[in-house]
């Protein structure tokens, strides 16, 4: 079951991202090739929420601060300088990751792969990237909305039970 769900996780994440952005922000996220998603030298933000159980891993949402400000403004009904407040943006991006992972976690649980979620964490910087250690499977997908990009990385720990 775990192996089967590992294979399906990409589809689950894809559905979760489009559902969360559509529901909370009325944003239509277009699935695009990972290669087309480039943040260049723009300041970035990454929000992450982990899940652990029969299947364990972390889901990261990477985007530019510019898009994160847009997301925050949409979520909180703010504009201008208020939508750029660092604490608001961090919390909003953390909550977006939380909702995406919550969506995925619920589907996993329904398919007999129960897990629990961690609380969100945020990293800011530029040129951010995750180097996966061995025994970790990495899946990447990217989305575009109005010229802004969102890169999603899913790290799944390949535990002994997961390989069975």
């Amino acid at each position: 079951m775990v192996c089967m769900m590992t294979a399906k996780v990409e589809g689950l994440v894809n559905t979760a991202v489009t559902t969360v952005f559509e529901t909370m922000l009325n944003m239509s996220m277009k699935d695009v090739a990972v290669e087309s998603c480039s943040f260049g030298t723009q300041p970035q933000i990454a929000s992450a929420v982990g899940f652990t159980g029969l299947m364990s891993g972390v889901i990261y949402l990477y985007t530019t601060i510019k898009f994160a400000n847009r997301i925050t403004g949409g979520l909180l009904g703010l504009s201008g300088i208020e939508a750029q407040r660092e604490d608001y943006v961090n919390d909003a991006m953390g909550e977006m990751a939380n909702m995406v992972v919550g969506h995925v976690k619920s589907r996993l649980t329904d398919h007999g792969v129960p897990c629990v979620m961690t609380i969100p964490s945020i990293v800011r910087g530029s040129g951010l990237g995750i180097e996966a250690v061995s025994r970790t499977q990495v899946k990447r997908m990217s989305f575009e909305c109005g010229g802004d990009f969102l890169l999603v990385e899913v790290l799944i720990e390949m535990s002994d039970s997961g390989r069975r």
């Binding site: 939380n98 919550g102 619920s106 649980t109 329904d110 129960p114």
Partner: peptide, 9 residues
């Protein structure tokens, strides 16, 4: 009001 759905929850 939670992100965690799923039948068991």
């Amino acid at each position: 009001l939670t992100a965690e759905a799923g039948r068991d929850n």
